[in-house]
Simulated assay, not measured.
Amino acid sequence: MTIDSAIVRAFAPTGALRASINLGNPILAHADKATGAPAGVSVDLARAFAERLGVALELVVFDAAGKSVDAVANEQADIGFFAIDPVRGAQIAFTEAYVLIEGSYLVREDSPLQHNDEVDRSGTMVAVGKGSAYDLYLTRELKHAQIVRAPTSPTVVQTFLEQNLDVAAGVKQQLEADSRTHAGLRLLSGRFMVIRQAVGTPKSRGMNAAKTLCNFVDEMKTTGFVARALEKHGVQGASVALDRASD
């Protein structure tokens, strides 16, 4: 794929591609244990796209989804990796999803809650990461339960425990890991939503830029790049979104 110079300038107005990376989503990004540098599926995709554009890559790293989204919406970053959501879509042009991630609920062992559809009841307090896809979704969907926002997604269980809340909501894999660290916790079976992870760029960059990014992501899926990246980073519980029907 040869990219027109005008589109390269649209994506890299500073001369480098600034990619917003959210370390709060362990499925897609994490700090390398040896070097501390950002690594993961989203970093691999950002590097591949910068190479495609023929520009340097600059990682803009955050600890929460909301901050990562704001960086792209406010044009402090040129692309970002986060879940598709209509609220975010007001300022950001999204590609199709490239990865699907399950959202789950976690409760205490002695909780009376047994099923996902029992959570939305008056008096139930649900912890969720501020500005995350789960926060945006549950804000729309929960009619009776009350949402309590933790500073970041990785601190959801900590907030849940410290404030003696009823439910923690978030990435299934993160909740599973936390349940192994803290005794007396369990996940409700199934999922309450599927997160459609995509790449986004400010709408102000234009339709041609957005189309170029969409084509790049489609190529990364169909050539197996995304699947290999998931395997390379040992990601479990996430799947490649191969087509629109699976999104």
Rank of each mutant, 00 (worst) to 15 (best):
Ser153Val: 13
Leu113Asp: 08
Gly54His: 09
Arg52His: 14
Ser189Val: 11
Gly66Cys: 03
Thr152Glu: 04
Tyr134His: 13
Leu187Glu: 02
Val148Leu: 04
Leu136Ile: 10
Gly190Tyr: 05
Val126His: 02
Lys203Ser: 02
Ala6Val: 11
Leu53Lys: 07
Thr35Arg: 01
Asp110Gln: 15
Gly200Asp: 03
Glu96Asp: 13
Asn25Tyr: 01
Arg191Trp: 04
Leu53Asn: 06
Ser68Leu: 09
Ala229His: 05
Glu109Pro: 05
Val99Glu: 02
Asp218Gly: 03
Glu219Leu: 04
Thr139Asp: 10
Leu100Tyr: 03
His233Val: 14
Ala145Ser: 10
Asp78His: 06
Ala16Glu: 12
Met1Val: 09
Ala46Gln: 10
Ser68Asp: 11
Pro26Glu: 03
Leu136Phe: 11
Ala133Gln: 08
Ser189Asp: 15
Val41Phe: 13
Leu185Val: 13
Pro202Asn: 08
Val167Trp: 10
Asp120Lys: 12
Leu45Ile: 07
Val72Asn: 02
Leu57Gln: 11
Gly200Trp: 01
His144Asn: 02
Arg140Gln: 12
Ile7Trp: 00
Phe81Asn: 04
Gly170Tyr: 02
Gln158Thr: 14
Lys211Leu: 15
Ala97Ile: 11
Asn215Ile: 13
Ser246Pro: 06
Tyr134Asn: 09
Pro202Leu: 11
Val167Met: 13
Leu57Asp: 08
Gly170Arg: 06
Ile84Trp: 09
Val87Asp: 09
Tyr105Lys: 11
Asn215Leu: 15
Ser246Asp: 06
Ser104Tyr: 00
Arg9Glu: 09
Leu175Tyr: 05
Ala6Asp: 13
Ala48Ile: 03
Val61Ala: 10
Arg121Ser: 01
Ala46Arg: 13
Ile27Phe: 00
Ala19Phe: 06
Ala29Gly: 07
Lys67Asn: 15
Thr223Ile: 07
Lys203Pro: 01
Val199Trp: 00
Ala93Asn: 07
Ala150Glu: 03
